[in-house]
Amino acid sequence: MHGVAAHANRAMRNIFLFIRRFFTFFLFLVLLGVSLAILVNYNKTYQGVYSGTANEVTGKINKGYNDVEYYFHLKETNKQLAEENTKLLNLLGSSFDAPDSSKQVKVDSLIKDTLGRMRRFIYLPAKVVNNSVTEENNYLTLFRGKNQGVNIGMGVIGANGSAVGKVIDVSANYCRVMSLLNRKSKVSAMMKKGFFLGEIDWDGADPGYLIMKSVTQGAHVANGDSVLTSNIVNLSFPPGMLIGVVTQVKADPEGTSTYLLKVKTAANFYNLQYAYLVENVMWQEQKTLEDKTQKVNE
């Protein structure tokens, strides 16, 4: 009886001694496990642990840095805004003229106009406070968050109306955006000529160029063709936003008679200072309907 207890005691002590002797190694394994969990969880959801709090803290520091950096870009930002203003002024009704045939003018402030058109996209301006182009996977931070109406999945458009990325994570006052310059980013796109669909991603090589795949060779793409966001409406991008211009045409060695296109980005990722978040207001309705059809088919 006594002997058994002593034996168990000794075994316990040996286990404790063993753990104490290799304590550092066990700690290393535990921390490595935690790190792997963080990494895997992030790759699945793009949301880091405590990302809400961490986003607020790093966002504030990035904001402080950007307040200084912004001065060096003022000229360029000013030029971009002026160019965009010109573009919008040219689209104004008053820039066009025609012999007047109307009898009466009515001011209509409803969101649904008499032709049955409804508002589908709303643009929200946001200041870019952090932006990287040198990583394998690049992200942006915008100074606008959940409190200011940002949701995960919203699209981000640069100052000249060109696609920049998608919102992947939101905290109270900041949001993180997955840039098009990210190996994990996949954006549905189409050729301006003929509306042939394809997919945009990035090979990590040059921040000035994107890769477009799975465009059928029947599209007869040539250098200089424009690439737009696809006309299949999704949560993020309105159709027909400029992504870039084709600069190199090759056959895709992996695909079956598809192209591998090199696309010069329309957005200048090096000096982004302002961006627009795009919200698809009718997305919820479209999504509910699509989900319902899926259920019926099952």
Binding site: V40, G48, S132, E135, R176
Partner: peptide
């Protein structure tokens, strides 16, 4: 990691 957008890397 929090500064570069990938907390695990």
């Amino acid at each position: 990691g929090y500064f570069t957008g990938n907390p695990g890397l």
